[in-house]
Design a protein around this nucleic acid. Sequence first.
DNA 1: GCTCGGTCGTTCGCACGCAAACGATCGGGC
DNA 2: GCCCGATCGTTTGCGTGCGAACGACCGAGC
Lengths: 164, 164
Amino acid sequence: MPTDLIPALAAAPPGDAARSCPLDGYTVESQVGFLLRRAHQRQTAVWQACMAEGIGEKELTPRQFSALVKVVLHGRVTQNQLGRMAAMDPATIQGVVRRLIARGLVDRALDPMDRRTAVLTATPAGVALASRGVAHARRATEKTLAPLSQTERRTLLDLLARIA
Amino acid sequence: MPTDLIPALAAAPPGDAARSCPLDGYTVESQVGFLLRRAHQRQTAVWQACMAEGIGEKELTPRQFSALVKVVLHGRVTQNQLGRMAAMDPATIQGVVRRLIARGLVDRALDPMDRRTAVLTATPAGVALASRGVAHARRATEKTLAPLSQTERRTLLDLLARIA
DNA sequence: GCTCGGTCGTTCGCACGCAAACGATCGGGC
DNA sequence: GCCCGATCGTTTGCGTGCGAACGACCGAGC
């Protein structure tokens, strides 16, 4: 299969194996998984840009922001509860929370009722940052969905929610 | 939504700060970013399941499979070229390719014309695995999109492609 | 020649994402 | 009171994802 052609033009035949049709017309870029990954990548990139120029200081990642907002809105939460709300498993939320605490955006307290758990609360700084972040988050959403009409945006959100 | 289940106590007021409305109705789970992440997570999980019971041996990850398929279909490719085709930056594709080579699915050769580049080719084992994988990949897609009608599936793919 | 801007692949560092295993603890049933 | 299964949070290990810096190399222009 590696027909030894001069690598002059990388435009070599579409792969000798391809013609013998072992993949039967399978195309990577028409797969849901691929498109979801691409779209998610792009969304993250847009987010970073909006947050960076909006908040500046050590930009918050999308996950950190989601977690922070959840803590702000829900008051006292357990770490694992938070993870479930933000769609992160215990191992992942652990790191996210650690960073939020390290930056003074979230506080941790022991629960006298259940010594296994640690109750999380947003600090004033956390609440403030979340408030300021919302505007930038909305901008990121707007920018990500820019190519779509209002109707299409609703459709997309609906379809995504149904396969999630 | 996932309103708190058991811990009666944790049902504390929806966050004192929440009532003062600092986030102005912002909800994490209605954000594109969040839904994309959720959907992508689920797709990956479904994929792993389909691949594991289908191929068994050290399941291929979705990215590894995408890259392998690209190599099979395109014959001779450069690593960075492959990265661009599969939507992975140079730092990322490096690791993916390293693993594919380690498992004997891809070969690497020096290009006498350009000593910077390394030309990649699929090994017979790589072609074979890609072929066998396609069926399982299709099953994964089917399973992921199961909640949607045929029309909705096309719509979703179209919308995703447009924001990617 | 030779310099210079651009590309190729690599490495490092950090942030997810998740399986797996762990010790500590809780709650229920006996 | 004691045992047992379930939960909580943690760590380890591996695989992405990407910015940043790097040394090697190409091609164009002087």
